[in-house]
Simulated assay, not measured.
Amino acid sequence: MQQESARRSNRDRTEATRADLIAAARKLFIEKPYAETGTPEIVAAAGVTRGALYHHFADKQALFAAVVEQEAAAVAAEIERASPPSLFARDALIAGSDAYLVAMRVPGRTRLLLLDGPAVLGRAAMDEIDNRHGNRSLHEGLVAAMRAQTMTKLPAGVLTALLASAFDRAALAIEAGASAEDYRAVLMALIDGLSPTTVPRQAPGPARTR
């Protein structure tokens, strides 16, 4: 029993150290460029040793990737909370779209996910992260809408990529001071424009969006 308790305590400490590193790194990565952020200041901010950092992460880039992954997961979680399976497919897409725009207004998030992420990790690695989180949710929502016949059937992968790009562009513009209402209106028009001329009665079902 004591041995199991010790293992749990060690695991908790390990997870806490990793979380502290990610939190400290996130704060520093949004204060100044990635290239100007050094590992010594990250470990100092986290209150751990360099050895602890390299125990959890191979290098600074790996730590940055963990920060980005956590941000992407947080955005996806907000989307999924806003678009439960009980919603009609189209309603879930709209609710999830709104949730994405709100979630991306967290300070530093657009920079981490849309600017520094692709620059530091590369487009391919960033796409993999997106596909595990936001793009996965969007893809599921689009497929659900097509199955409910409230959206014209199109190649789901291509549609996901193009709509995701539109949402990302909107998030960047809003971050820069553009009208959130204007961008939302256009995004909603894009979604509605994908609906067939005759829309049958919808049935509730799983639906997720970005």
Rank of each mutant, 00 (worst) to 15 (best):
V143C: 11
A180W: 05
E128L: 11
A161V: 08
D192F: 11
I129T: 01
L159Y: 07
R136H: 10
R132T: 05
R147F: 13
L159R: 07
A189L: 09
E128G: 10
A176N: 06
G141K: 00
N131E: 13
F167I: 10
L187E: 00
E140I: 15
P155M: 03
A161Y: 12
L154T: 08
V143T: 13
L172C: 14
V186W: 12
A124P: 06
V199C: 00
D168L: 13
T197K: 06
S137D: 09
M146W: 03
D168N: 14
Y183D: 07
S195G: 13
F167N: 08
Y183W: 14
L172S: 13
T160A: 02
A148V: 04
I174T: 00
V199W: 03
E140R: 13
T198M: 14
G134M: 15
T150E: 11
A170T: 04
A156H: 10
T198Q: 13
L138G: 04
S195N: 05
G177D: 07
G141V: 02
H139I: 08
A125S: 12
V158T: 14
E140M: 15
V199D: 09
E128P: 06
P196F: 01
V186Q: 09
N131M: 09
T197R: 06
A144N: 01
Q149R: 15
Q149I: 10
D127N: 13
D168T: 12
A185C: 05
A161L: 05
T160P: 03
R169Y: 12
R136W: 08
A156P: 09
D130L: 12
Q149A: 11
R123L: 15
R147T: 14
A180F: 01
K153C: 15
A171I: 04
G122M: 03
G193N: 00
T150N: 12
L159H: 11
K153V: 13
S195M: 10
A178G: 04
T198H: 11
A164Q: 09
R184A: 05
G157C: 05
P155E: 00
R184N: 10
G141F: 00
G157Y: 01
T197Y: 12
A173G: 02
T152I: 15
E181H: 11
L163V: 07
Q149G: 13
L190Y: 15
V199L: 02
M151W: 12
G141L: 03
M151C: 07
R123E: 15
A144T: 00
S137P: 00
T152K: 08
T197D: 14
A173K: 02
D182Y: 11
L187M: 06
A176R: 01
D130P: 09
L163R: 02
L138P: 03
S179P: 00
R132S: 09
A189E: 12
L162T: 14
L163M: 08
P196W: 02
L190T: 14
A156C: 04
D130I: 12
H139D: 10
G122H: 02
I129E: 05
G193V: 05
L194C: 09
A125H: 03
L138I: 05
E181T: 08
A125D: 08
E128I: 10
A185Q: 06
G134A: 13
L190C: 14
I191G: 03
V158C: 09
I129F: 03
A156G: 08
A144D: 00
L121S: 01
A125K: 08
V186R: 05
A180Q: 03
A176E: 07
R123K: 10
G122Q: 01
